[in-house]
Design a protein around this nucleic acid. Sequence first.
DNA 1: GATGTTTGTTAGTGAACCTTACGAAAGGGT
DNA 2: ACCCTTTCGTAAGGTTCACTAACAAACATC
Lengths: 389, 389
Amino acid sequence: MRTTTPSFVEAHGQGAARARVLRPSTKVLPEHARGHNRSLVLQTLYRAAHQSRADIARQTGLTRVTLSDLVAELITEHLIVETGQREDARPGKPATLLDLNRTAFHIVGVDLSGEAFRGALLDLDGAILERAEQPRDGDVGADATAKVVALIESLVARATLPILGVGVGSPGIVDLDGTVLSAPNLGWTNEPLRAQLADRFGLAVVVTNDANAAVLAEHSFGAADGDMMLVTVGHGVGSGLLLGGSPLYGSRFAAGEIGHVVVGTDGGAECACGKRGCLETWLATPRLSAALAAAPTAHARDGVLREAGQRLGIALAPIVGALNLAEVVLSGPVELLDGALTDSVAETVRARTMDVFHGGLTLRMTTLGDDIVMRGAAVTVLSGVLGVS
Amino acid sequence: MRTTTPSFVEAHGQGAARARVLRPSTKVLPEHARGHNRSLVLQTLYRAAHQSRADIARQTGLTRVTLSDLVAELITEHLIVETGQREDARPGKPATLLDLNRTAFHIVGVDLSGEAFRGALLDLDGAILERAEQPRDGDVGADATAKVVALIESLVARATLPILGVGVGSPGIVDLDGTVLSAPNLGWTNEPLRAQLADRFGLAVVVTNDANAAVLAEHSFGAADGDMMLVTVGHGVGSGLLLGGSPLYGSRFAAGEIGHVVVGTDGGAECACGKRGCLETWLATPRLSAALAAAPTAHARDGVLREAGQRLGIALAPIVGALNLAEVVLSGPVELLDGALTDSVAETVRARTMDVFHGGLTLRMTTLGDDIVMRGAAVTVLSGVLGVS
DNA sequence: GATGTTTGTTAGTGAACCTTACGAAAGGGT
DNA sequence: ACCCTTTCGTAAGGTTCACTAACAAACATC
């Protein structure tokens, strides 16, 4: 057993650097607790409708008294309504059931990731009520912004109920304030989209990265749990990560940008970014479709798809291992992704990682189709209004 | 512009699945807020010593009144002491300075990741005061646990101050309760180490994965910020991830397990796990040392190191891209890692990812040497006692 | 009809933070 | 020397929030 002398300690300069154990945090007041508990009530009702005050109290651990108080507050704000009495025959006073005021608000969800801007009016459950589309016609910069405004305008005009908020899923890099730091396709640099839209419409607006919106949709409406990666394959390849139930943004808000990661050690086609063998050169739909068209036989087409899946699997394996992901979901054209490609991804990832507990990884297509980003954008509004944190 | 009919909605089953927007959370009481604010005070003082009540109040946003109250409470618990008056010449009543009671407690930090179990007595700043070592002699299971107890016993006996807590960094998979779910080298399966040690010593005990402890140490004592990956190279290869200032555990507490991820598309040596080309087959120190010994010239040795670095870079690239990491730190034998290998990792990762903002990635060796796990274990105790929430 | 159960509300208590106000202790100006 | 200003820490009292205790209402069961 050795003993360090003071000089050893000094030599390592341990006294100099002061530890930063905790992340810089802010004060918490009782009113913040109130807000949290408010969200808790809304959350509970959101997941299971038609519960009584006593039910919610039991679930949340709050007292019936406190809960009554919270509910009264939420009723005056028209976020909650009483929906009648419970009818089953039990002893005791019959319960008055509550529910979110689901038919009292609309949400506007917008998806800027495609060739045309798409939007929809949704209800609080995330069901799509009305759709709208705005061809972009190659517009960039301020013109593109104007098209977004026009799209939202048309949806707002069609709403028959108060609008809870506007959610936007944008490609590119978006910071926490909803400023699009960089979106090459749309010609945006430091575009303060959220602030502009909020000013223009006087509504709550949330702007997020499209893949992050998608991963939230999958979490909310799909069967996915809180740790998941959603890979979007389209004109480009991107991804959104959900860790512990909340999206990962990354140190420069660019988390999920895997399209230009080089995959494999055997070269590959040249990419628009200048490198060789980027994930996109194998998977982006234009290249993939071209390769499929060039394949002479069904067998050859299968080979193309399996190769693409293998490449994605090679890129995903280190991520799945490092993050101990239990679930990866693919989103994109079903006719390309579903089947051989998905199977191949799963096989490749399983072959290249160690399942700590066997049967660890689930890999599947999303069930939400093309609406995933719009519906995810709506979820961001719900989260914002219901209050996360 | 299309409009969805109700049947479309039904067809997609949107009404059926209820969104789970928010992660299941628990109620928050005023007393929890109090705890949070207590931590905030300790945190503020931990980062910069010798501040007055008024200073802390300004920093945290709490009022001087509230702060006086919190400080009084912390002083009665001997966690904070008054250290005299401020001496600079200013108008107004001179400030009475406060500091953490840095000389009033010891922390026990233990590292189980090496051939021998190592431990130390540390002060609140993380400086090592006394060391102890306990050869494992190949013991596994209960015998290994007994060795851990003996090691801690010897350190506790040597402490001249009350012990704030015991931190343990263990290899393998450790859950949030400090149960070692699986540590093949130590022959542990579902070993409730934290509970056992807490029972035995009547002290606060924190048990974490060794790489997670290391990444906390690097964050606390090194220059690393809140988004970082720390790769440990030794008998095996592992990693710890810090995202937004807090460690990532993964869906099955196995985050960071990258040693058995297959890297590259060109085969590789056979691994103990049965696969070919695992990261460990290129990087684990026994293999690396053997390869170096077999290399005839300095030039060949350089090649071996560069090859190893390249392999690590290939595995890291997708992770760095997906998580948008700004910093990767290596920990392990300096004579192997520092130099050609580290350079090669950096080059490879940069060449295989897209730096969204140029100069994005910092890649370097840790400056904490062999003590990194022990000191990280001490940080877990500080976090636990100061209260992370 | 008496008893027990469940629901939701009223009344009162304690915790935690706030605002307002004040004494203490210094510097600076006349 | 005196007064004014600044800064620090503490008191006193108010507000918010959730809790406990108690109760009325409404139902089932015996």
